[in-house]
Every structure is written in C-alpha cells, then in structure tokens.
C-alpha cells in the first residue's frame, strides 16, 4: 500500500490540521516564514515559535527571482540567500531539529526543486517531515512530473486558485490539489494590504464549493478584521509578508499570530 493512500499520509496531516481548527470553530492559521530570515542561526527557534501558534507552517525556500512576491519576501529571500540558506540546508535543519506539531510545507519556486531532482527531493522531504509543497511558478498544467514524484511519498502539491480563474479550470485545480487549495484573494504580488470586498467573499465561496480539500485564503492578509471577515468562507487563512515583517522587527511571532484569531484565545 502506498503512503499516498494511508490516512496518515503527509498530505492528509495538513488537511486534518486545518479541519481541526474548523472543528474548534475558527479558521486555521497557515503561517509563512522565509527560511533563515532574519537570521540563519535562529531558524529552528523561529520555526518552533511560529509553529506553536499556527496550525500549518509554510517554509519559504529563498530564490533569486521571486517573481510572484512583493517587496517584503523579495527582501527576505535575498537576505537569506546572502546568509547561505539553500534547500539542502533547510532539509538538513528540519531533519535534525525536534519535530514540531504543525504540519510543514515548503514554498519554493520551481528551479531550486528542479536542480535538486524531483525524486531525490521527495525522499529528502519525507525524511525532513515535510508534508507538502507550494510552487508559485508551477501552474497546474505544468505540474505533472513534480506531482507524480511527490505522490509516491504521499506529499501534497498545493494548487492555487485566483479570482480570475475560470470555472472550468477551477474544477481541475481543485481536483488536483492536496493538503489545501491556496485561494489567492487578489491579483498581484504578495504583501499588500487589502480589504475584503463582497466579490472576494463570493469567489471564496465558489472555490470552497469546488474543492474537496480545505480552502485557505492568502495574499495581503495581515489583520484580525480580515481574518474575522473571511471566517465562514474559508477553512484557513495564510499570513506571509506581515509575519515576515514581525520577525524582521524582532517581535514575538507567536503572540502576533494568536492576536489574529482572538476567538481561540
């Protein structure tokens, strides 16, 4: 029996963690940090702190050309690279550190994964207790080779939906996605503050209707009001740039994350 079909397959751990928050009546918190930023030697401690307050954690693999990201994540990527952070280093750190409760995903542009080799990557990710991947420059249609390699280890490849995705494509994206569907709440790059207008709520309802796995909304989420407004329309919310800025300022990420979701306090 392959790992992919077992209930404890890595991708299923992501889905379960998000559903567990829903069972408590709150949207799951999916938190993003760039590996090794602001300081490489604090990676394990930062990750543990973030994981203590989040339901799922996305670890950003720095890349020289983060074309889908805004200024904050461009800055954090560049700085992490300058400190010598690589995919290989991240995987080694994760394999060596005490496990955290929250399922972990790697968020990476495709070329570092391609350079690593997909089959070797899937094996190394499993050893590092990674549950899945998010690849912002890999649309559904081009994802076959990576998706197959990850599937042999039961690892998720999270697909993205956007407000401009057609209904026909949304059905395909949702069917292929494991772990959750990443619903981008706006067009544009990461990190800009956005209000949550009615049409975004309607769009999220459409994604949720199309998806069997949980739906998490991301891009531009940084306040408790936004989280409250999205609750009921999504299974989880993704916070990226705002959390990176919290870490950058040297503040307590766990406290900041908890304040996003007062209902659980």
């Amino acid at each position: 029996m392959s790992a992919a079909t077992r209930e404890n397959a890595p991708h299923a751990r992501i889905e379960a963690a998000i559903r567990a928050a829903g069972a408590r009546g709150v949207p799951a918190l999916v938190a993003f940090l760039t590996a090794g930023y602001p300081r490489r030697e604090r990676f394990r401690a930062d990750l543990a702190a973030v994981a203590s307050a989040a339901d799922v954690v996305e670890i950003g693999v720095p890349f020289t050309d983060p074309m889908a990201d805004g200024v904050t994540i461009q800055r954090s990527s560049r700085d992490a690279l300058a400190q010598g952070v690589t995919l290989r280093w991240i995987l080694a750190e994760l394999a060596a550190m005490p496990p955290v409760a929250a399922p972990l995903l790697l968020m990476s542009y495709l070329n570092p994964l391609h350079a690593f080799g997909y089959a070797e990557l899937a094996a190394a990710a499993e050893r590092a207790r990674i549950a899945g991947f998010i690849v912002p420059d890999l649309p559904f249609d081009e994802g076959g080779a990576l998706r197959e390699a990850l599937k042999t280890r039961g690892l998720a490849l999270v697909q993205m939906a956007t407000p401009v995705t057609t209904a026909e494509r949304l059905a395909k994206v949702c069917a292929a996605s494991r772990g959750f569907v990443y619903a981008v709440t706006m067009t544009g790059t990461t990190g800009r503050h956005v209000a949550v207008p009615d049409d975004v709520v309607a769009y999220l309802d459409r994604v949720r209707a199309a998806a069997r796995v949980p739906v998490c909304a991301g891009f531009g989420i940084r306040s408790a009001e936004q989280v409250a407004r999205l609750a009921g329309h999504v299974d989880g919310v993704i916070v990226g740039s705002a959390l990176v800025e919290v870490l950058e300022r040297g503040e307590d990420p766990a406290a900041w994350l908890r304040a996003l979701r007062p209902a659980t306090a």
Binding site: P139, M160, G188
Partner: peptide
C-alpha cells in the same frame, strides 16, 4: 512551456 503564477493564466 508556461511556468507562470496561476494569476497570469487567464
């Protein structure tokens, strides 16, 4: 091929 963010697909 076409390795772009989902946002650009349409």
């Amino acid at each position: 091929g076409r390795y772009i963010p989902e946002t650009l697909i349409p």
